[in-house]
Design a protein around this nucleic acid. Structure first.
Lengths: 339, 339
DNA sequence: GATGGCATTGAAATCGATTACACAACACCT
DNA sequence: AGGTGTTGTGTAATCGATTTCAATGCCATC
């Protein structure tokens, strides 16, 4: 209840409120609010307000602004693990695009854990976020209902059942086909791979491999694992210890590829002499490891930027039907697949 | 939830406010608030409130909560670029620790740009964040005054003038010394390196190299560049085209090391036969590139976790004097430095 | 000179929560 | 029996902004 007449110095200790700016400028709080926003204010008063803001060192309280205006100017980015270089790159693109339109980004790591996914989705609701960009596990993608959540969702990397939500994905079948055709052209016939078992992505890439092989009357041997370097390395070691190993192996993403290469090294297998190796994600290291690894390069930055663009478009027109943007991967041929 | 009647009735379109919960439970809003928090509420009413929360599908509005309680439960993490694997790993640790104590993280990329740093620091003030973990450029570290900002700051990777702010850093001189001693033990005498020119880290690592060399009566040749793979590759190519190239080169961080390796490859230089190469940051790929790269491994996850811990301690005791936690790097010897 | 826009402005309501304060009910002391 | 806490509860104030609504002054028009 006590008045604070100490306008002596700027930020002694009290935080400056809009009321203080109004007092200093000799106008009403409404006018200050309008001058700071885009309301109709005369040039004269606008100048006064700007001077008062500078003099008092006023910084708006975003919580108050959000509460009253009902605009959080915040989006959520929910991925499995930011340390996956794919998501790292995507996140950078999303944040660039978000900050460019005055939005903040809340980043969440789910570790492919449906419980964490549910928890973070609820958090997003409590934050009253403007929208969410989300790479869900298969389990969550299935039961996801954007209508129920209260904010638009754009899926990345992994898609939901058609028509349910906007999505930006790679043409996984096409990309897998590119890889397989390349391997076949190099003379490899017996082809297999390790695929992630938590997302739809692993399944789609396997399906692409299978389809391409079948077009040539061949079969593919696939194994499904947790999409981590550790699981991939272990599976690779086990596989390489068996009698009949394929001539060429495919990794369903960058982390799996990393683990597979480690496993091959540990087993003393020479690449490509004893085994050809290829995979997804043109991470920095794939160019430099061994003879260079043949990979499918995803337009990572583009995926993030496009996801953000779709989110903004969805906000403009909430009613339009769900869209799926399918981007193409690029085959980068390196030494790991030269017979 | 198989109760269709309730579903259609309840969360049709209106957002549920605490007032609605109070109405549904037949208690006052204060009691609802206390039941959700840790206030004194009888078991009977607490049960009623919980039932009403479940029935109405109430989700608290965090903006309102933050405004009133004056606790944002949010911390800022300001780094140069999340795509730098060092910061990626740190960010994951920070977020794990933050969410574990019920705090959210706002991530900002500054691209080593002092203007962006200033902009994001102001944003943090407007968000009324609880605290900030910050990897500043040298320019900003110099003029940083945590008192003025209004929230505690913990610096990572790079330190400010002593006593100004809490910090978690690597013992750069010790680590650089480890590298140099190792190279000398391998018989290399003419040693040089590429160091980042924006942070104090590059300078400290150079100083460490210089000091170690001087202890053996030797000199070191250093060049300072923008800490990006592109700049490093270009500088490397230029250097390798000159007549007298050192026998061993050191990179001041993982990105620079990546660029240097690319430059060496482009110039057709064999490692370690024609040139030894070593650096900082035990990124995934360093183990797999060429003969394996000798590096200083930083305790990346530990750095992030410690930074968060220091921030929480500082919040408990704002008055205590600034602390600097110095962690040690570990030398990982690989093929790139075997003479 | 009265009337009707139009552009500004301020007072007050409002966003949705937490919390200070008052008060009732009840056990525990002298 | 009469203070004295202690607990649990409701009412109302409050956080700091935006936004509604009414009022003002000014100018052109009739």
């Amino acid at each position: 209840m006590q008045d604070h007449d100490n306008l002596t110095e700027n930020d002694c200790k009290m935080t400056v409120r809009i009321k203080d700016v109004a007092l200093a400028a000799g106008v009403s709080v409404a006018t200050v609010s309008r001058a700071l926003g885009d309301g109709p204010v005369s040039d004269e008063l606008r100048k006064k307000v700007e001077a008062a803001v500078a003099a008092t060192g006023y910084l708006p309280n975003l919580s108050a602004r959000r509460l009253r205006s009902q605009h959080s100017h915040t989006i959520g980015l929910i991925v499995s693990d930011i340390r996956n270089p794919f998501f790292t790159a995507v996140s950078r693109a999303v944040e660039d695009a978000a900050y460019a339109v005055g939005m903040r980004v809340i980043l969440c790591n789910t570790d492919e854990n449906p419980q964490k996914e549910a928890m973070y989705l609820r958090l997003m609701q409590e934050e009253r976020v403007t929208g969410v960009i989300f790479a869900p596990t298969r389990a969550t993608a299935q039961k996801l209902d954007p209508q129920q959540l209260g904010f638009p969702v754009v899926l990345i990397d992994r898609a939901a059942p058609p028509g349910h939500a906007d999505a930006v994905v790679l043409d996984n079948a096409e990309a897998a086909s590119l890889l397989v055709e390349h391997l076949l052209a190099q003379g490899y016939q017996r082809i297999g791979g390790l695929f992630g078992n938590t997302s739809t992505t692993g399944a789609e890439r396997y399906a692409g491999v299978l389809a391409a092989m079948q077009r040539h009357g061949l079969q593919a041997e696939a194994r499904f694992i947790a999409p981590t370097p550790e699981a991939a390395e272990q599976a690779m070691r086990a596989w390489l210890a068996e009698p009949a190993v394929p001539q060429a192996l495919i990794a369903s993403n960058g982390l799996v590829l990393l683990g597979m290469l480690r496993g091959a090294r540990a087993a003393g297998i020479a690449i490509p002499q004893q085994l050809a190796l290829a995979g997804f994600d043109n991470d920095n290291w794939t160019e430099l490891a061994g003879p260079g690894l043949t990979v499918i390069e995803q337009p990572v930055y583009d995926i993030g930027r496009t996801a953000m663009k779709m989110l903004l478009e969805r906000l403009e027109d909430p009613a339009r039907s769900a869209r799926k943007v399918v981007l193409s991967g690029r085959l980068v041929v390196r030494g790991s697949t030269s017979a």
